[in-house]
Structures are given as C-alpha cells and as structure tokens.
Nucleic acid binder design. Structure first.
Lengths: 360, 360
DNA sequence: TTGTAAGCGTTATCAG
DNA sequence: CTGATAACGCTTACAA
C-alpha cells in the first residue's frame, strides 16, 4: 500500500505559525496561488483571491521572513550607517529616510560607526550579511575595502550629507565647504579678524574637512593669512565643545569669533562662555552648523548653517528604492546637490570695539 | 548512462556570493562540517577546521541570512519599539541596549510608535514578521491584541521605562510616580503652593499618567487640594512646551512652579519664560524629567529627575538575551526596579516673595 | 487563471 | 569526528 503523500502532518504543534501550505489547504488551492495572491493579487481571479484572503486572516497567517528572503533573494530591508546616534545631527534626516522607506514597504536597519572608517567597514559587512538590499552611507571618506565590497556584492548605495562632484558616486547632499565659506564671509564682514574654529577630527570625515577648508577659503579671499587660523579638533559633544572653547579664550590672543563645526560643539561653547562670564555676541561671537533643535533653545539662539536634513533623507530613500528596483542602475548622474543656507539668530554679532585682543 | 550528480554547476554566475557548498568543495569536506566549523568549532578536529577556515576566507564566504534564518529558526535580530525618535529621551537607553546586544552578536531593529498603541501594535506585527527573536517595549499601556500576539507567537519581550509591581510581566524600569512625588515634595518644601504641570497626553502613556499622579500624591500628603492643580497635556516637543507654558503664565492665577513631564517640554517652557521676560527661578520655577543632555545646556540648568537610561538599556538586553536562550523562560520575578533620583540644577528655587499670585 | 515542482542556502538528525 | 540527507517555508518558471 503506497504511503499517502501527506506533507507536513503538523501533529503535536498546534500553536506553530501557519504556513503557506496551511492557507492553501484551507482555501483549497495550491501554495503557488496563495503566494501570488499575496505578492501580485492582480494575477489571480477575484473569487479565489477572496477565498484565499479569507483563509489567510482566519489562520492569522504571516509569511516567514527567512523563507521569503531565501526564495526571493531580497529582504526588503535597507541599511543606514551613520557616524553617531548620540546626538541629533542625523536624527531628522534619518527619520525622513525611514518614513520614505516605509511608504515603500521597506524596513530600515540602522547602525553607527563612531566616525571610524574601520568600524564602518565592519558595519557594512554586518548589514550586508543581514541581507540589506541597499545602503545609505554618510560622507565620502571610507576604506577602499568598503567600496570594493559594495561593488563586488552589487549593493546599491548612496552617499549623503556631502557631495563630491568629481567623484563618480551617487550622492545626495550639500556643499559643506561653500556653506562654511559663506558663513565665514559674514563673520569677516562684521569686522572679525581674529577667528578660531572648533572642528570635529578631520581624518576620515570629509564634512569636517570641507568645513574647515571653507573658513580658509574665505580668509584667503579677503587676503587674510589662513595660517593664523587656530583650529582645535575634538569629537562632537557638548562638553568637548565647552573645553575647546575654554582653551581658545584663555589663550593669550583671544579670538573674537569662534566658528564651530557643528551645533553640538557650539552649544558647548556657548554654555562655557556663559560660565566664564563672557557675553555672546557682545564679547565674543559663536557660530554653529546643522541647525538642529538645540540651536534654537540655547541662549542666545545660535547663528548657524541650516542643513536640509529631511530633504536629504527623503531623496536618498527614493534614489535607493529606484536603484534597487532597477537592479543596480547606479548612476552618479542622479546625484543631487541641495542648498545649505545661513540661519541667522543672535550668537553672531559685530566685533567688539575694545581693541584688547586685536593682533592685526 | 547515469547523469552525474553535480549540484549547483554555478555556471555563468562567477560573481555570485559563495555558498556553504562552495566552501565545502574547496576544503574537501561536506557542507555539514563547514556549518559546524562556523557554529560550533569545538566539534570538529583541529586540522579540518583550519582547512575549512582557510577556504572560508579565501572565498570570502559569508552565510546567507535568509537561509540561516529559515533553517535555524532564529534571526539573531531583536526589535525595539520606542514612542519617538524625534528627541533624545530614549536615545541613551537605546544606545546601551544596542551595545549589549552587539556583544551577544545580535542586531537591533528599531521602530517608533508615535505614542500610539494602535501604531505600536502594527510595529509589533511588523517586527515579528521580520523575524525578530525578541522585543523591547516601552511602558505597560498597549492594546490587548498586542499582548495576545506576543503571547501566541511566544516572543520574549521586556518592558522598560516603567514598572508595574502588580502586573505579571517582565519589566525593567523605575517608579515614575514615586520619582515625581519626591520632586514635588521638594517643590512644596520650597514654599510653592500654586503648581501646574505640563504633561504628555496621559492616554496610552502610563509614564505620563504616573508622573501626574506623583504630583497629586505629594499635594495630598501635604493636605493641599489636588483639584487646584492645573494640568496641560501636550505632545512632547520644545514648541509645545513653550506654548503650554505661555498659556499657564498668562492665566489669571499664575503658578509659581511649573513641573514638566519631561525635559523637552521643560526646555520649551524655559525658553518661553526667557522670551516673556520671566526670570527662572526668581520669578517662576520650572522642573523637568529624564535628565537628558538639553537639561544641562539650557540656562538656567534644569532641575530634573535623573533617569538611569543606560542601566535600563543594558539590563533589558541581558534579560532578553537570557529569555531567548532559555526558550521563553519568561519570569516576571526577574523584573528589576532601578532608582530615579533628583538632579539639582538651578531652575527650581524658593517661591517668589511677592504675594501677587498667591491664591491661598 | 491555476497547479506542479524545482530550487534557495542553511541547520540538524542520524548513521557511520 | 564526519557525511548524507531531510527539512525549513516561500517564490517562480514552466505546464496545463
């Protein structure tokens, strides 16, 4: 007597999750039909579709992620690697990125690299290993291995927060250098001659590097000697900003304006200025970069560079979705440059009249 | 002539990712052995292990996520659903959670519910569908369906940021009610009689509810009529905090102390106070809750309740890992209550002497 | 429009 | 200690 071909007797596991097969049985159709119903409803007849869908929610069926990934060779999961989650710099952009992905039925996996290219490489590997279909990366500085890996595995990726016109990579961002240069022009126009900048470490961080360069550009353009520009590098954090500021102002020749690489650093500088009894901007001017929330709650409000966070996030998501769907139609030509504009508040003012600090 | 059994000829796809089989062939062993090498190295001999590992990195092999998930029935991915990513309230705790998971080789999937139980239910479904092995949830308020789902699918989960001693669920947090009560005691001890609170909407948010209750508790204990306590509910955001504060102080009987449900609201209140020309704490006192970074950069520094964010995150992760490994050894007895203490800064001071606002 | 069946790349059970 | 081999649950040609 031939053994009856009864697949998956399901004995003794009354509570296990229902499978496609269960639904198929219930609806009296094949698993293929059920699958189609779920993935491409248009391809099945009205009547069977209703049958199937009824069975689906009767059984509370939900597809098995692993199985689907294995068979379809895609996870509908994208990854994003940002330098840090500890402050809000990337929060708004990431939020927008996520929202756009969600509209496309894609889940976001986020990890952070602590501003280290080596760590980022590890994260890229991890994300790929977890089946990320595409990746969002911040800035252009990373190990060659990272790029090779992305290339070899054919992982669609876009680079945000920075543009590098000369480089053949899809990116969406703004020109950090020009933005900072513009801001510096304003500072100089207010009469400041003695500037200093508090920057993030420039190694492995093209945004930080470009911003510093922007300051230099402006100085050069005004015929000031850029070698006299004091730059302190320190990781982004409120307290580091405060420390750096203190170092700067307790120096013999104190600057009249301190340009910070971002708002977090600037917030720290501002706080310390207050603690030291320095009035901003009467005694000293301070500027930020990013225009995140703290820029408007510190006192005085921070004059800073407004960065189109949400736009970048949304656009990056759209780009990435398109790239994934076109099966790696990576095209540097679809790169986008957005504008970063100055946001005036109160922390930047004219140079103080007292000549005590002038060294010119 | 029997056809030669040559699995996976791999013709024409020279760049596809190598599989276990490729590695096995290369190393001259079976796929089973390779798998063991990777998952339980102790169970294979020294020599073959070296062979296999050599082949592995020669080929740059990385396991396929979907296949592994399908076969092993686990993804090594945990999920976390937090009410919001828009401010830093949960950032530090989540960071710690993530770090601990990473130590255990687990990836974190984060999503946010916008403080809506319905949305949270959707997120729970989504995370489970994506194969999350375990879940971190915030607070106890959620739909019954959410709990049922978790139960039915046997998903290990812990609840953080809140404790509910009477409820049989594994949780790790602090007592929001008592913490707020303690803070209120201090406020009352400073002579304030006319209090107001700016809270997040209490529906679906047990933390917010408990904090308000704490204020009432303290008032009752001091024999003050809690009905005279003005409570404004508004979603967490700087600008909402500012608006609520303005409403409060432009009212006929202005409070001398405003207790805010969290630091974000308080920062808004503080900012608006300044804009309105009110000195804090000389004219009016303001308190926060959470002790996130902005609490120390606003001016004056915010007197607030320090919440053990990182501890919660780390502990939650440990708990969850243990639960997953013990195959759902969910035990409410392993719940942990941490301490939340008052962090004194400068925004809370004695009640102003001018009797203009006293209504007692 | 629907069904059949061949994978997808692992893990895990059992023999050897 | 190692090798066959049967799942795992789904997608997707290919046929009917």
């Amino acid at each position: 007597m031939p053994e009856q071909k009864l697949k998956r007797p399901r004995t003794g596991r009354p509570d296990a999750s229902p499978t496609l097969e269960d639904v198929a049985q219930r609806a009296g159709v094949s698993t293929a039909t059920v699958s189609r119903c779920l993935n491409d409803p248009a391809r099945v007849s009205e009547v069977t579709r209703t049958q199937v869908l009824k069975a689906v929610d009767l059984l509370g069926y939900a597809p098995n992620f692993g199985a689907r990934a294995l068979a379809a060779k895609r996870t509908d999961t994208f990854g994003a690697i940002i330098p840090t989650m500890e402050n809000a710099i990337f929060a708004r952009g990431l939020q927008a990125f996520q929202e756009e992905l969600e509209r496309n039925g894609i889940t976001l996996l986020v990890s952070s690299s602590s501003y280290s290219p080596e760590l980022e490489e590890k994260q890229i590997r991890a994300l790929i290993a977890r089946g990320a279909d595409a990746l969002l990366l911040i800035g252009h500085d990373r190990t060659q291995q990272s790029y090779d890996l992305l290339e070899r595995k054919r992982i669609p990726h876009v680079i945000a927060w920075s543009i590098a016109p000369d480089v053949p990579r899809t990116s969406i961002g703004f020109d950090n250098r020009t933005a900072m240069k513009t801001l510096t022009h304003e500072v100089l126009a207010l009469g400041h001659r003695h500037l200093a900048v508090i920057s993030a470490p420039r190694a492995g961080n093209d945004r930080a590097r470009d911003r510093c360069r922007g300051v230099v550009d402006a100085m050069v353009q005004h015929n000031f000697d850029p070698d006299r520009l004091r730059i302190i590098e320190t990781p982004y954090s409120i307290s580091n900003g405060a420390e750096a500021f203190q170092t700067l102002v307790t120096t013999a020749s104190r600057p009249t304006a301190v340009l910070c690489g971002n708002d977090v650093l600037a917030a720290g500088a501002l706080t310390r200025a207050r603690e030291l009894g320095l009035r901003v901007p009467e005694d000293i001017s301070i500027t930020g970069f990013d225009d995140i929330e703290i820029a408007q709650i510190v006192s005085p409000g921070l004059t800073t560079v407004h960065v189109p966070h949400r736009q970048m996030g949304t656009h990056a998501a759209k780009l990435l979705v398109a790239m994934r769907n076109n099966e790696y139609a990576d095209d540097p030509a679809s790169s986008v440059e957005l504008d970063a504009t100055i946001k005036w508040r109160d922390s930047l003012g004219p140079v103080p009249e007292t000549g005590a600090n002038t060294t010119d």
